[in-house]
Design a protein around this nucleic acid. Structure first.
Length: 397
DNA sequence: TCTGGGGTCCTAGGACCC
DNA sequence: TCTGGGGTCCTAGGACCC
């Protein structure tokens, strides 16, 4: 089963507003959840059904949305609220199975293999559907099928507030007539290429020779062919997995051309990233810096460290070095990002033969700073060298 | 006042090793 | 009448997802 919250950010914001005495339900008017245009992050994150009727699409600019519907109402996003409602949903779903994979903040896969009869399975879907609406106050779409891919495709059919099935005998009638752009795993780069091959529907794709797709698109080609034919053997990953990489990035309110300013922001990002890293009890082996120019040209540089670390100072020093390598003087930078990859458990961290001694003093400082952040809030303590930046840009946690 | 932020997985070429 | 073959690791970039 795949459970997908309808217009999640918007529905949850609506509930939060109603709870706090709002007279209007923003689900009933043309409205969107959007970023902040003054911070150059003005894109649509979620839309109401009414906004959808104006042709407004997720991820387009608020500027475009306003052209389509000048009276559109815009509300900011708040992930604290979303996490709260997401948790409520997760708790309710946990009553039906403990094998739940949280696919994103508003989507879950449920392993329902314990319900052997198709009819009981559908009764459970109906029950979940009804209970979420009545007890939590928002609606979900539910897809029921024999594997994750088909359940996900089913939950996407028609919205909102619907249950759809997609069993083997329904693939041909329900999925094959859909345009290939609807297939999970096909995006804006591959769809035009398939169109050029006269492959326009999922059915067309299913009937294409697997070898042709494999030759043209490699592993991806095999996968989309299998998806089009309803084949998916992946398990419901219900155990919480540690992240494989942790990153933070920020679109700057204004383009920056001074490397010193970029370094200050990099320090703030290093604090944020390593704080998250330490909370997970992980250490990183690779540091990666991303820059985006004013013309949206992205470059990344990464380097493996001599030993794994979660130290703010050590990660920052490597990041600074990478920045120096890659930054072409005078280039106006729009976005800067820092990621750590190749993570490993702190305990298991192996001591290299050639390891330069770890900076114990730095580790102690990090631990104390983390404790203060835990107790008094992420922004309660900061480095003097980045106070100016902190005042300009809010780094959330 | 035009274009977010956080992820995962894959590919390709170069360096290096035996 | 020059210059293998197999393998791993590292790095940059691409595609896709929500």
């Amino acid at each position: 089963m795949h459970v997908d919250v309808n217009n999640a950010f918007l529905s949850w914001t609506a509930l939060h507003m109603l709870k706090n005495g709002s007279k209007i339900d923003i689900r009933e008017i043309p409205s969107i959840i959007g970023g902040d245009e003054s911070k150059r992050s003005g894109i649509v994150l979620a839309k109401s059904q009414k906004a959808k009727e104006f042709g407004i699409k997720t991820a387009e600019t608020i500027y475009q949305a306003r052209i389509k519907c000048p009276s559109i109402q815009i509300y900011p996003s708040d992930f604290k609220i979303y996490k709260e409602y997401s948790h409520k949903l997760f708790m309710l779903l946990s009553e039906y199975t403990d094998k739940i994979e949280q696919f994103s903040i508003d989507e879950c896969f449920l392993d329902m293999t314990q319900y052997l009869m198709k009819s009981t399975l559908l009764d459970k879907a109906k029950e979940i559907h009804k209970r979420v609406r009545e007890e939590l106050g928002f609606t979900v779409n539910i897809g029921v099928a024999n594997n994750k891919l088909l359940a996900k495709m089913a939950s996407d059919f028609t919205k909102p507030d619907k249950i759809h099935t997609l069993f083997k005998n329904e693939i041909e009638t329900k999925m094959w007539p859909l345009p290939i752009s609807e297939l999970f795993g096909l995006g804006k780069k591959t769809v035009p290429k398939l169109y050029n091959m006269q492959i326009k529907t999922i059915g067309d794709l299913a009937k294409t020779k697997k070898e042709i797709l494999a030759k043209k698109f490699g592993k991806h080609g095999t996968q989309i062919w299998e998806h089009a034919n309803g084949i998916d053997n992946t398990e419901v990953k219900y155990k919480r997995e540690k992240p494989k990489g942790i990153g933070n990035s920020i679109t700057l309110p204004e383009n920056i051309t001074q490397i010193e300013k970029l370094e200050e922001i990099l320090l703030a990002l290093a604090e944020q990233v390593t704080y998250r890293l330490r909370k997970e009890q992980l250490e990183a082996n690779v540091v990666n810096v991303q820059l985006r120019t004013k013309d949206f040209v992205d470059t990344t540089h990464q380097e493996k460290l001599t030993y794994a670390t979660a130290s703010t100072k050590e990660i920052y020093q490597k990041a600074k070095q990478l920045l120096k390598q890659m930054y072409k003087p005078q280039t106006p930078i729009r976005l800067i990002g820092l990621r750590v990859d190749n993570l490993e458990e702190k305990e298991k961290a192996q001591i290299s033969l050639f390891q330069e001694t770890k900076d114990n003093k730095q580790e102690k400082i990090d631990i104390v700073v983390d404790k203060i952040k835990e107790k008094y809030g992420y922004n309660s303590i900061t480095r003097a060298g980045k106070m100016e930046i902190d005042n300009k840009i809010k780094f959330k946690q």
